[in-house]
Design a protein around this nucleic acid. Structure first.
Length: 456
DNA sequence: GGAACTCGCCAC
DNA sequence: AAACGTGGCGAGTTCC
């Protein structure tokens, strides 16, 4: 594709997105206000519990009559690292001792669990519930979508940001998404492109093994078996846990250009709940079959993060030098081309120029092109909506997914049209997409909130 | 008193 | 040699 086509995509795109913005999403203001005061009570009581603790008293004393702000990372860092002399394991970007969730959890101080719970509730209240309330007009929010702010030529969203509403944390998801409703007598539906970025990367690098794995393999399972040295059994819950550890702690980071040292920490410390320092002992870590992860790894000759890191180093080499060696070759070629020209052009016709790190050069075109598939679909679905006079509306967009407010009588037809546009029509128009595209569809019952999605 | 920065955390 | 990409946003803090 060329630059004219890229320009047209964004021009049509911004028109479709502004229609989306104008449509808006209905929110339940009564729920938001009730939930807000419930959270206020919870925070008050947790704050009381925290400020009565020994930990807090000591913190207060150390500040010589200056007041304590329990929400200040600076003050907390000073107390933990300078007063209590805890050894710094993780630094912030400016070299201060980190006080993020992971770090505080590792300290094993029970009072800090209270503080973390308060912070989680504040995040839900201040960013999401109050954000919705601030931005609403007559019970509807109208998130703004931008196409001119992101260096990869993706979109961003604001006022409120509809692209970062909690999903993985069950409690936060439930509270926040219960605020979002379809119009009366309608239902919310979300259509996600399956593995969109991976499929687009396969279109760029044309790696046979990667395409084969996307279509009929299971790379997460395969790599989990190598990393944790076991034979995968889908009926064993602990095997499923290690599969998702591999997916989120190895496969995704590797595709973004991470390296084995971070992955080793990810897999064992963050996912396996094993200690970062010292030798692992029996009974440590998450459950694995009839024992714990440490028991299993020790049996296989791995008894610390250091030895595990060496193991991951070998697996990383096999991953890029053998399994996906064509992908690795493409990366080198793509990067060399950038060094030569000072820019590169995506399959969707966008030119990326300026000073970029190696990982940026690998990621930007793929991330952008993947989003452009979604944007193309948004434009075409909007056209169908207008042409066929749907009552159904497109109301949101999250990089590789769309959210619709569906009239139940139109549901079957809308699903057919959306599927056809997102999986078939796009490949007719953009023949450079060499890998089949597929979608996942989730739906909520009529008049139910966005917290209650289920598979269609 | 506002701009700009830092930190942390939510999404893909 | 370097070391996972893109954003928005709230609260705390510092600078001017």
């Amino acid at each position: 594709m060329n630059v004219e086509q890229a320009n047209k995509l964004f021009l049509d795109g911004i028109l479709a997105l502004s229609r989306m913005e104008q449509q808006g999403l209905r929110i339940d203001l009564d729920y938001i206000r009730a939930k807000n005061s419930e959270i206020n009570q919870q925070i008050q009581s947790l704050e009381r519990e925290f400020t009565n603790s020994k930990f807090y008293k000591e913190w207060e004393k150390s500040r010589n009559n200056k007041t304590v702000n329990i929400y200040s990372p600076v003050q907390l860092g000073e107390f933990i690292y300078h007063v209590k002399k805890v050894k710094i394991n993780k630094e912030t970007i400016t070299g201060q001792g980190s006080t993020d969730e992971e770090t505080l959890k590792q300290l094993g101080i029970p009072e800090l669990e209270i503080l973390l719970q308060i912070k989680k509730l504040k995040k839900i209240r201040d960013t999401y519930l109050e954000g919705f309330e601030t931005e609403q007009v007559d019970g509807y929010i109208h998130p703004v979508y931008n196409l001119h702010l992101v260096k990869t030529f993706r979109s961003s969203a604001s006022n409120p940001n509809f692209q970062n509403i909690p999903k993985r944390d069950k409690e936060a998801m439930d509270i926040c998404r219960k605020a979002i409703y379809p119009r009366p007598r309608h239902q919310l539906m979300e259509v996600d492109y399956k593995q969109l970025e991976v499929r687009i990367s396969a279109t760029y690098c044309n790696d046979k093994k990667l395409i084969e794995d996307i279509l009929e393999g299971d790379m997460h399972r395969d790599m989990a078996e190598k990393i944790f040295m076991f034979k995968y059994n889908p009926n064993e819950p602990s095997h499923k846990v290690l599969r998702s550890a591999t997916k989120n702690g190895f496969i995704f980071p590797q595709f973004y250009g991470d390296f084995y040292k971070n992955c080793a920490v990810n897999l064992t410390v963050n996912w396996g709940k094993l200690p970062r320092f010292g030798k692992w002992k029996k009974g440590m870590g998450i459950e694995f079959e009839k024992g714990n992860l440490a028991d299993h790894l020790i049996k296989n000759g791995i008894n610390s993060l250091d030895t595990f890191t060496e193991h991951i180093k070998e697996i990383e080499q096999e991953f890029w030098n053998i399994r996906y060696f064509r992908y690795a070759k493409w990366k080198e070629k793509w990067y060399a081309e950038y060094l030569q020209n000072g820019y590169f052009t995506s399959k969707t016709g966008f030119t990326y120029s300026g000073l970029m790190r190696k990982n940026d050069v690998m990621n930007y075109a793929i991330q952008g092109s993947a989003f452009h598939c979604l944007l193309w679909s948004v434009i075409e679905i909007t056209k169908a909506q207008v042409k066929e006079h749907w009552d159904t509306r497109l109301i949101g967009q999250i990089h590789d997914a769309i959210v619709l407010d569906v009239n139940p009588e139109e549901l079957d037809h809308v699903v057919d049209v959306v599927r056809c546009i997102m999986c078939n029509d796009i490949r007719q128009t953009w023949d450079w997409i060499s890998v089949p595209l597929d979608v996942d569809i989730e739906i909520c019952d009529v008049d139910h909130s966005w917290a209650e999605k289920h598979n269609l």
